[in-house]
Design a protein around this nucleic acid. Structure first.
Lengths: 217, 217
DNA sequence: TAGATTGTTAATCGATTAACAATC
DNA sequence: TAGATTGTTAATCGATTAACAATC
């Protein structure tokens, strides 16, 4: 399997994509510990993954080959991950719904490390409008369309109660948003060309409680 | 493939397990709309899934067979989902780290619908200790072990900064916690018999931004 | 009845794992 | 050199999809 062929394939599996941030976090840790090289074997062991799987993943992400007997240069590998995951070109986003969860997300500065920059927030409740949360202004929802179009933003985050989620979603799409990160526990109906990623805590919990039940039984 | 065989297989795929809450949310919506029966075909269409896949999933979850020409009785199906996902037997949990995210989770009452009941929280910062958040007491971290053992709790939620996450994790395991829901963006090292579910927002974001990039390109 | 929808058995597809030669 | 670790090619495994008979 050569590199050029692989790069043509843009349909990388979700399972693999979900593993990448785990590798990335791991590598950053090792970097802080002043490690300079890392082998895929070691990574697999620590992360409890199959070593062949890790090698395959690294081969896809890494721009340079690893050295037999040694492994990969840590700094280079981290760079490769950042490039691959798009953490280098920061994406602007807007957030709708400045409740508890919305405020938490707005307050979290770590997103920038992952290539996300929330530029503004929207809500309809008088008591939060025109306030700043972590230096980000909260606008009335009516201003959304205008601002999104003007700044050419294509990523929207929904943290409103589920009752309003679909309306907000529709408004976002109308305004030119192309991808939606949905924290409302509801199924959003969208046209085919819109990407939705559900941040479904219930799903996580289902996985966990199911495993737990199996273990205890 | 008959039902008895299926029930023996307790190793249900994660992918399938992640779809179940989507079905469940969808069914609850339809229930609110006073629908009485639902066909797998309709579900597949609305949720943009392959109809055969939906039929398979439903066959596994549902206790009664669907009726050709009609579909499934909505109420029964919802019950089946709740039983299957374990939302009926609520699990007690404790949470460590009463920062923004921790407070958000403590304040969210919806977890009970999903079978999770947070009974207490822990932190080491004086200003939050002995306060109540959404009627849940915040205790000093030293009390964790005792309380977890006494109440026989086996689910722990970690919402501390990543620097302390491993320590908290170790303490939890020492105290008898069997499953950990980890919100810290760090890889936790745990013994084999402990289940960890990472709630990795970076991973979600990776998936989303990757899809977005592909779309825009 | 006719036809929609079901559940089952078989085929396909893709991801993971195994085996192994290459190399520092 | 010897041996660990790499990248590649082939085999396996499991999940998804297709085909179809059963049934209300």
């Amino acid at each position: 399997m050569n590199k050029d062929q692989l790069l043509d394939i843009d349909d990388i599996s979700t399972a693999m994509l979900m593993r990448l941030p785990r590798y990335y976090n791991y590598l950053k840790e090792k970097n802080e510990e002043k490690m300079e090289v890392i082998s895929s074997t070691k990574m697999a062991e620590d992360l409890k993954l199959n070593p062949i799987l890790v090698r395959k993943d690294l081969a896809l992400v890494s721009s340079t080959a690893g050295k037999p007997r040694v492994g990969f240069v840590l700094d280079e590998l981290i760079d490769d991950f950042e490039t691959f995951l798009g953490y280098n070109n920061v994406d602007d986003a807007i957030l709708v719904g400045v409740g508890r969860l919305g405020t938490t997300l707005l307050s979290y500065d770590g997103f920038k490390d992952y290539g996300l920059n929330i530029v503004a927030a929207f809500d309809e409740r008088e008591d939060v409008i025109h306030q700043k949360v972590n230096d980000k202004m909260v606008f009335p929802i009516e201003k959304l369309s205008n601002l999104v179009k003007r700044l050419n933003i294509h990523l929207g985050i929904i943290t409103v109660p589920k009752q309003c989620a679909q309306d907000v979603c529709d408004l976002m799409i109308q305004s030119g948003i192309k991808a939606i990160w949905n924290f409302a526990p509801i199924h959003l109906v969208v046209p085919d060309h819109i990407v939705v990623k559900d941040e479904n805590m219930a799903a996580s919990l289902a996985v966990l409680s199911r495993k737990l039940a199996k273990m205890i039984k």
